[in-house]
Each structure stands twice: as structure tokens, then as C-alpha cells.
């Protein structure tokens, strides 16, 4: 039985996230690291909407994340200096691409689905990588930055003030996460769980399984491209590696590490992963080996993730 967010757990999570800028520096972090955790947590939770709650394994979510990244970057650089329009373009780009790709792959299952999502993800990587004149190629897209948001009466200085930007990120995160929780609690979400548990039975009950998986895929990709858009704003930079397959793997490991069957699992996974990566890459040049080893250890020893283990303990 999947547990949707209980009120007490959610209260603690929200309280921690709301106060994050005030205690982050006390434990040796910085506000931008907090923003990074929240953005990547949004990406991992979006992936988990599909992976943990629909039971469909996508290994290509970085593509839609990356479309969000480049949507923002290209809009702010060439089109018009408006952060909100940039986010909208990024999300739209990711969602449309996902809708098209989804229609092609929705009939595939299991390991085949995973392989095709990986392969399709690479198309967008090569476009970003090869189209030098527009996307900056391998060097990435720079020469633009996030623009303070005019709210009529006041001005949200997300460029100069890290905390203001953090709260913009948290605001988007809250909206997306609430929407996903609402969807999962709705009949639609329950149907997705039914498909995850027993696809054949769901089909016999007359549920249009392919349509549901397609909708779940597009929803998941839409939120992941929102995460990508925020990620671009966080870095003031669009990196082609944001849409490469290793990034997809990072999202999956975050979800698994935190616990894919728990709503807040990917958030915990993202926090651990981001802090670890930040630390290891500051300590050694061979951080790739450590991250690789970390993947292997997680698979061998923590396949249920942090929350999976905790829940099992509390159940026994």
C-alpha cells in the first residue's frame, strides 16, 4: 500500500524547507546549495511520479529537464528578458517534446521502454551539442542571466538576492508538488497505482492503460522541465550535459536512494546526492569513480531507499 504524504511528515518537510536559508549556513552550506537541492528534488519527484507511482521506468528524463534549461536560456538570451516568460517557454518545450515522444513509446514496456527513453533523450543532447551558433555547443549557453521579476507594486530581486531566488524556487516546487500529490490522491492517481500493481488486471477492468501511461509520462516530463527551467536560472547557464543520459541516471538514483514508494523519498535522495556530489567533487578529481561506486552500493545495499528502510523498521 502506498502511503501518500501524511500530514505530520509533510509539516516537518515544509517547515524545514521554509526555514532553510536560515539554518543552511549554520551547518556549513550556502543558500544556492539549498536551491540546488530543491530544484533537483523537484526533478526526482517528477520522475518518481512515473517511476514509483506508475511503475514505468524512464531513463531519459534529462532530455525534458534539459529542454527546460535551454528553453529558459534561449528565451532570456534572444527573445525577451523576462524570467516568467522564460520558465513558461521551457516548460512548454519540454511538455510538447514529451507528448510527441510519449506517443511513440507508450506501447513499450519494462526494459525496452527504458532503452528507448535513453536513446530518444540523446536526440536533444545532440541538437544542443551540435547547433553551435544558437546553443553554444559544447561550451554551453552563457551570456544571459535571470532577470528580477516585476510584480507591479514590488520588485522581486531574484538576481541579487539568493534568498529571494530560493523562495521563488520553493514557490514553484510547492505548486508542482501539491499538484502531483493532488493527482495521486485523485481517481486518476489511484488508477496509475492499479496499473503499477497489475497492468493486466487493470486492462481487463477496462482501464485504457496506454492513455494513462501517456498522461503520467507527460505530467512527469512537464514537472521535470519546470525543474530544468529553475535549474538554468539557478546557474545562469545552460550546459549540454544537463540533457545527457548521465543526468537521467542521477535522477533515477535520487529516487531510488530516497525511496521510490514514498512521496517524499526523492527529496531525501536528492538532498543526500547533491550534498555528497558537492563534497566529493571538491575533494577529488576522480569524483566520477566515487559516484559510480555510490550507485553500486545503493543498488546492492539500499535498494528500498532511506524511507523504504525506515518504514519497514516501523512496521516490524
Amino acid at each position: 500500500m502506498t502511503r501518500l504524504p501524511k500530514h505530520s511528515t509533510s509539516m516537518v518537510v515544509w517547515l524545514l524547507l521554509l526555514t532553510l536559508p536560515f539554518w543552511m549556513s549554520a551547518i556549513g552550506g550556502y543558500t544556492a546549495l539549498g536551491s540546488r537541492v530543491v530544484v533537483l528534488a523537484l526533478a526526482a519527484m517528477s520522475l518518481n511520479f512515473l517511476l514509483g507511482f506508475t511503475g514505468v521506468l524512464s531513463f531519459g528524463h534529462a532530455a525534458y529537464f534539459g529542454l527546460g534549461v535551454y528553453g529558459v536560456g534561449l528565451t532570456l538570451k534572444y527573445l525577451l528578458p523576462n524570467t516568467l516568460v522564460g520558465i513558461a517557454v521551457g516548460v512548454l518545450a519540454g511538455t510538447i517534446a514529451a507528448a510527441v515522444v510519449g506517443a511513440l513509446i507508450v506501447r513499450l514496456r519494462g526494459v525496452y521502454f527504458a532503452m528507448v527513453t535513453i536513446a530518444f533523450g540523446q536526440v536533444f543532447y545532440f541538437i544542443a551539442y551540435r547547433w553551435n551558433t544558437v546553443t553554444g555547443g559544447d561550451d554551453g549557453l552563457s551570456g544571459w542571466r535571470r532577470v528580477p521579476i516585476e510584480l507591479g507594486v514590488t520588485r522581486l530581486d531574484i538576481l541579487g538576492n539568493d534568498k529571494a531566488f530560493y523562495y521563488l524556487v520553493l514557490f514553484c516546487f510547492a505548486g508542482a508538488v501539491t499538484a502531483m500529490a493532488g493527482l495521486l490522491a485523485s481517481p486518476f492517481g489511484r488508477t496509475l497505482l492499479a496499473i503499477r500493481e497489475n497492468e493486466r488486471r487493470a486492462r481487463f477492468l477496462g482501464i485504457p492503460v496506454d492513455q494513462h501511461i501517456w498522461l503520467s509520462w507527460v505530467t512527469s516530463c512537464m514537472f521535470v522541465s519546470l525543474a530544468g527551467a529553475l535549474y538554468a536560472l539557478l546557474n545562469n547557464f545552460a550546459d549540454p550535459h544537463d540533457l545527457r543520459w548521465d543526468q537521467s541516471g542521477d535522477f533515477v538514483i535520487m529516487a531510488v536512494l530516497g525511496g521510490m514508494r514514498a512521496f517524499w523519498g526523492p527529496l531525501i535522495g536528492a538532498a543526500i546526492f547533491v550534498v555528497l556530489q558537492d563534497y566529493v567533487s571538491s575533494q577529488t578529481e576522480n569524483w566520477m569513480s566515487f559516484i559510480g561506486l555510490f550507485f553500486i552500493l545503493v543498488v546492492l545495499f539500499f535498494p528500498r531507499g532511506v524511507l523504504g528502510i525506515l518504514r519497514r523498521k516501523s512496521a516490524s
Binding site: L51, L57, A114, V252, S289, G292, F294, I296, V299, L300
Partner: peptide
């Protein structure tokens, strides 16, 4: 040593494990 443990489990895990291996090989 590694892959054998994952037979019969969700393909998710063998994907992640070989993914980690790929990182280690490239860096190695």
C-alpha cells in the same frame, strides 16, 4: 561478483548498477 545478484529483480537495479560501473570504468 556484481551482476549475478540482480537477475530476476526489477531491471531498474541492473541498469543503475551497470550505470555506476560505466562511470567507474571511464574514470578508471
Amino acid at each position: 561478483i556484481l551482476i549475478r545478484r540482480l537477475y530476476g529483480r526489477d531491471p531498474l537495479y541492473s541498469l543503475l548498477l551497470t550505470f555506476g560501473l560505466a562511470f567507474m570504468f571511464e574514470d578508471g
